[in-house]
């Protein structure tokens, strides 16, 4: 899975969860500050990514931006291969 494919998936799931346009889900966006997600939203997003990509994501406080999510997912996808 390429980073671009991961980003597309993240955009789809984040926009669905937060009820916003996929175009708003840019790499630099801070999930809580810019996209106004609460901690339960973040939890639901991570859970959805786990289910859809069949990976395990640990709760990680350092994840703040969409770029962080993509990187984190990419690492786990690589580890699962």
């Amino acid at each position: 899975m390429t980073k671009e494919e991961i980003l597309n998936k993240v955009q789809e799931i984040v926009s669905e969860q937060l009820d916003i346009e996929p175009q708003e889900v840019v790499l630099t966006a801070d999930i809580k500050e810019d996209l106004e997600a609460d901690s339960l939203d973040v939890f639901e997003i991570m859970n959805e990514l786990e289910d859809e990509l069949d990976i395990q994501l640990e709760a990680d406080e350092s994840i703040k931006t969409i770029q962080d999510v993509v990187n984190h997912v990419a690492t786990q996808v690589a580890a699962a291969d």
Binding site: Q17, L18, D19, E36, D38, D41
Partner: peptide
């Protein structure tokens, strides 16, 4: 505050 109920509604 917020849009939690809109998200449930969706």
């Amino acid at each position: 505050p917020g849009n939690t109920l809109s998200k449930f509604a969706r």
